Simulated assay, not measured.
Amino acid sequence: MKGSTVSFASQAVSKVPEVTIGFWVIKVAATTLGETGGDWVSMSLNLGYLVGSAIFLVLFIGLVSAQVKAAEFHRFLYWATIVATTTLGTTLADFADRSLGVGYPGGTTVVVALLIGSLAIWYRSEGTVSVESIVTAKAEWFYWITILFSQTLGTALGDWVAGEDRGGLGIGYEYGAMLFGAGLIVVAALYFWTRVSRTALFWAAFILTRPLGATLGDFLDKPVAQGGLHVSRLYASALLLAFIVACIVLIPQRSIRSEPAA
């Protein structure tokens, strides 16, 4: 039975794209859109964090379900699902930090626990958390739930580092983006010049790109008095969306396993 499972996994087609430079460019843009888009719905439209989270949760479940049911990799579906996780992650983190009154440190701690729990359960169930193993519906759900928690953590972490209220460290959005960018450079150096687990480095980079996007998004739409550029959240979101669509069209992408393994 075990041998047949391994044989199936080796021949199944993954619906996760290869992790290339283009992948990370789109990922950072998507996380920035998640910040501006999530804030536009919850703040600019005055719907609040709870209602905003409910709206994005419905989109998240619908898109993940479509992704799981798909027979092959579809680039627009995949990245639409990523954007859904970033917007939901934004409103969930803001709801925890602000509406629940636990502050940035408390919200970050809660989401760290959820992310570790998700990875631990996934590993216990599947024996790996590598993106190269995502060839079953069960593994896909683990993947997307873990991504959601990583996006939520990124928002909470970015707000904690850059914000001045609610227990924030107050280093500002520009310096926050530089800090997380430096963290990504360290991860890249470890990837190219060490033998550190590629799976661990992938998740480290995936988590760090979220607070980078969060601080960039806040830098775009926050008032000048708070260190931002005060760009309309709607306009910023529209520009980011156009950029993402252009990247998806122009940057070659294929699934990790585009052909059955020998």
Results as ranks from 00 to 15, higher is better:
4 S>F: 08
4 S>R: 13
4 S>V: 10
5 T>A: 14
12 A>D: 00
12 A>M: 08
16 V>C: 01
18 E>P: 00
28 V>K: 03
34 G>W: 02
34 G>I: 00
39 D>Y: 03
41 V>D: 09
42 S>Q: 04
42 S>H: 02
49 Y>P: 03
49 Y>S: 09
54 A>Y: 00
60 F>I: 11
60 F>S: 06
82 I>S: 00
83 V>I: 11
85 T>V: 00
85 T>E: 00
88 L>K: 01
88 L>M: 03
90 T>L: 01
90 T>K: 05
96 A>E: 07
101 G>C: 02
102 V>F: 06
104 Y>K: 02
105 P>W: 06
106 G>M: 03
109 T>L: 13
109 T>V: 09
111 V>M: 00
116 I>H: 04
116 I>M: 10
117 G>N: 08
119 L>R: 15
120 A>R: 13
131 V>P: 06
131 V>R: 13
132 E>C: 09
136 T>Q: 04
140 E>F: 14
146 T>R: 05
147 I>A: 08
149 F>M: 10
153 L>D: 01
156 A>Q: 11
158 G>Y: 11
161 V>P: 06
162 A>L: 11
163 G>E: 15
170 G>S: 06
172 G>Q: 09
178 M>K: 08
183 G>V: 09
183 G>Y: 09
183 G>L: 09
185 I>W: 08
196 V>S: 04
196 V>I: 15
197 S>V: 06
197 S>R: 02
199 T>K: 05
200 A>Q: 09
202 F>L: 00
206 F>A: 06
206 F>K: 01
211 P>I: 00
212 L>A: 03
213 G>A: 07
217 G>D: 09
217 G>Y: 06
221 D>R: 11
223 P>H: 01
230 H>R: 08
232 S>P: 10
235 Y>I: 15
240 L>H: 08
241 L>T: 14
242 A>N: 08
243 F>T: 15
243 F>N: 12
244 I>L: 11
250 L>Q: 08
251 I>N: 01
